[in-house]
Design a binder for these strands. Structure first.
Lengths: 151, 151
DNA sequence: GGTGAAATCCCTCATCG
DNA sequence: CGATGAGGGATTTCACC
């Protein structure tokens, strides 16, 4: 799919604030409220805009510690990957799981209340799936963290 | 700040879908639309809900490659840190920058169109700030990636 | 893409449990 | 705190040009 300059403006504006009215949005991108509405709907239906969500402040809800877990496995068990995927998808606190370049190397991003919370999450994980090697790095400072893609 | 079960339900619902009406939301959490509206407003004003944003599909806009850059530096002078922070904040494509514990100093999460795009981003970064050591890991598969915190 | 009109929703207030 | 009802105003949505 291809997007023109106005589509890009719309997506940029909505990535910043999805709560604004079509009036405001239309004025920003130089379109009438209605033409703008049709564009937004098209972007949603084409899947370019996947959803509108509320962002919650992690510290405010007691999830002040962010941790990256680097998982290495040398298991070539065919069912291992499925089990790992299922386990990580279900465990609360695990926000992202990526399979990385390199030999079966996974990166997990999680949010927990504190170190005890991390330990609980770690125990929960290795209980459900055997993992050869896990190393954890904790986030001391979030210099930048955005959901908005550069368009 | 403390949240009761209904606040948690509201935040969970809005983390999934921030576009739903107060009618729907109220029904979901077992509250009238009006009582629900007051809760939502309080959550927004307290900062627990920071914003409502649209999520854009990275592949749909040609940013199909996600990369993590592990940055190590041996210069810990304050001027370098400021320069690094400013550079990463400005460069488009860099979505997250974290200062970490342990042997790696900074972790950068970025989205780029392809390998050429990564190289361009890398060049842009080291042009603005001297970096001793960078290693990049590319995401082959996104098993999970959520903006919703577990409440 | 624009215009206008209908349906819906948001926000506020006031009152009562 | 929450429910209900009601009002004005804004917004979404759908006709048609």
């Amino acid at each position: 799919m291809t997007f023109d300059a106005i589509d890009v403006k719309i997506m940029n504006a909505l990535q910043r604030d999805a709560g604004q009215s079509l009036e405001t949005l239309g004025a920003d991108v130089g379109l009438s409220r209605n033409a703008c509405w049709r564009r937004v709907k098209a972007l949603e239906e084409s899947g370019a805009i996947t959803s509108r969500v509320a962002l919650v402040d992690a510290k405010a809800v007691g999830l002040g510690l962010m941790v990256f877990m680097q998982v290495r496995t040398h298991s070539h068990d065919p069912g291992w990957q499925d089990k790992f995927n299922r386990a990580t998808r279900v465990i609360p606190g695990i926000l992202s799981v990526y399979r990385m370049t390199g030999d079966l190397d996974y990166l997990i991003r999680a949010r927990v209340p504190d170190m005890d919370g991390y330990d609980a999450l770690y125990q929960q994980l290795i209980e459900q799936v055997p993992i050869a090697d896990v190393s954890a790095s904790f986030v001391m400072e979030e210099i930048k963290d955005s959901t908005a893609l550069p368009l």
